[in-house]
Design a protein around this nucleic acid. Structure first.
Length: 439
RNA sequence: GUGGGUGUAGCUCAGCGGUUAGAGCAGUGGACUGUGGAUCCACGGGUCGGGGGUUCAAAUCCCCUCACCCACCCCA
């Protein structure tokens, strides 16, 4: 047996249906706010991520799927999408537009050890708002992040889910070096107590020590200098204004002084969406501002930007966990059309073909709301058994008895009611499906 | 990449050196030949994740490997 590669998934019905609906829900919501779909390649040149996500980040350091193509080009399966979106904006010369709002959804690849909600091929969705330096853009992104999740959870009938937005500012190129220096000076005193990883981080990226889960490191971090105490005036104003807007709009956020992100392109605002599942904290999404990203990719460009990215698989886990009935809620009305056929009279099949054709003809009235199934059975009993097993809502059937009386039967399997219709009307049953089922 | 746990029927699992590997659920057929879900009876189904080793004898013990789950690391 050839199995699928580690950390990948087959999404078979009905999980695939749920994913489809979630994706639809996301795009439906974001389009109303003026965000439009952007699609970029699944593989990119390796340089794109080395320059943007950062050579010192774990993603670039050890998690990328790298390969050479037949001409020896160094390519990678994309580990995230923000860098690609910014690259696309530059390459397609979109930067002079003042309405640079995009949403994306698609696969990303990271070579990690799989766990629940963490896969080597995962699906990320997110939005990017480019070209706006104002704190209003940060506000819009955070507002949309929170309310997109609210909208999805509401749509899938999920109540009582608690998710929190953690937020911080990590400053800009002016003030961050000072802060990093202060952090370094603080942590160097504890160098021998820090875990091995953090001892390395001391020189590579001090900020990430704040993110360490090691208990000793955590305890040391408690009294570490906070980035917000070292922000320059502009960064401080930006952050204060943002927090004011969020407060005025009753957006529930937690000011997390030690929140940092593993991708190097962020500046000023960073945030994460955290939710609780069985006493575990799971990150649903993360994001922030990345005003230097365009410049990292090509030094002749400066394009401000702000966005967030969320994981589709993690979201799906929550929806399934909080609403186990979800696939039933999403299912269309199922109708089984059956011919009870236990003799040689093949003429009876013409009614079956008739329904096939009419379903096709009226597809616009039926789509999203009805699913049709067809079968030929030797007895009514087996037809009903099959319908029951398939969780069919209505069965329409024609057998010898019906032919003799020139009728067909419609039975509501949920309440057992049954009604007889004249076979002369068979051509109208799909066209008038609503009336037919409403008896 | 590190540490731990688990792989036995379609599903959930029992068996943990000793006949021919089991149960429940699901499936198929019948009792019941035109009105379903119930009940009873019968039946089908397994390279015990894969490979190697130890042994008279391995699902069971050992080694390797693959996959999943959990905690790290990191992140969506």
């Amino acid at each position: 047996m050839i199995e699928r590669p580690r950390g990948t998934n087959d999404f078979i019905p009905f999980e695939s249906i749920l994913r489809e609906k979630i994706i639809y829900t996301i795009s439906e919501y974001l389009k109303v706010f003026g965000y439009n779909l952007i699609e970029t390649p699944i593989f990119e040149k390796i340089e794109l991520f080395k320059r943007s996500v950062g050579e010192s980040s774990d993603i670039v350091l050890k998690e990328m799927y790298e390969f050479k193509d037949k001409k020896g080009r160094d390519l990678v399966l994309r580990p995230e999408l923000t860098a690609s979106v910014v690259r696309a904006v530059i390459q397609n010369k979109l930067y002079n537009n003042n309405y640079l709002k995009f949403y994306y959804i698609g696969p990303i690849f990271r070579y990690e050890r799989p766990q629940l909600g963490r896969y080597r091929q995962a699906t990320q969705f997110g939005i990017e708002y480019l070209g706006n330096l104002s704190f209003l853009a940060d506000f819009e992104i955070i507002f949309l992040t929170q309310n997109l999740y609210n909208y999805i959870f509401n749509k899938f009938n999920i109540k009582n889910i608690e998710f929190k937005i953690h937020i911080n500012s990590i400053g800009c190129n002016l003030c961050r070096p000072t802060y990093k220096k202060k952090l370094y000076e603080y942590f160097i005193n504890y160098k021998n107590d820090l875990c091995q990883d953090c001892q390395k981080r001391l020189d590579i990226n001090v900020l990430r020590i704040l993110d360490c889960k090691n208990l000793t490191c955590k305890n040391i971090s408690i009294n570490a200098p906070k980035s917000i105490d070292y922000l320059c005036l502009e960064c401080k104003n930006h952050f204060d204004n943002l927090l004011n807007l969020l407060t005025m709009n009753n957006i529930d956020f937690i000011l997390d002084n030690y929140l940092v992100r593993g991708l190097d392109y962020y500046n000023r605002t960073v945030f994460e969406v955290k939710a609780i599942l069985d006493n575990n904290i799971i990150d649903l999404a993360g994001g922030g501002r990345y005003d230097y990203l365009a410049n990292f990719i090509d030094s002749s460009y400066n394009i401000a930007g702000c966005g967030f990215a969320g994981g589709l698989e993690r979201l799906t886990i929550f929806i399934n966990n909080y609403n186990s009935n979800i696939t039933k809620l999403l299912s269309p009305v199922k109708i089984l059309f059956t011919i009870i056929h236990n003799n040689q009279n093949i003429n009876i099949f013409k009614y079956l073909l008739n329904i096939f054709q009419n379903v096709n003809n009226y597809i616009n009235n039926l789509k999203e709301r009805y699913s049709f199934y067809f079968s030929i059975e030797s007895s009514l009993k087996s037809a009903l058994k099959k319908a029951n097993a398939m969780d069919i809502n209505y069965i329409i059937f024609i057998g010898d008895y019906e032919i003799e009386k020139n009728v067909f039967q419609v039975k509501d399997l949920k309440n057992g009611k049954q009604k007889e219709f004249s076979l002369d009307q068979i051509n109208l049953i799909i066209k008038n499906i609503e009336e037919l089922l409403n008896f």
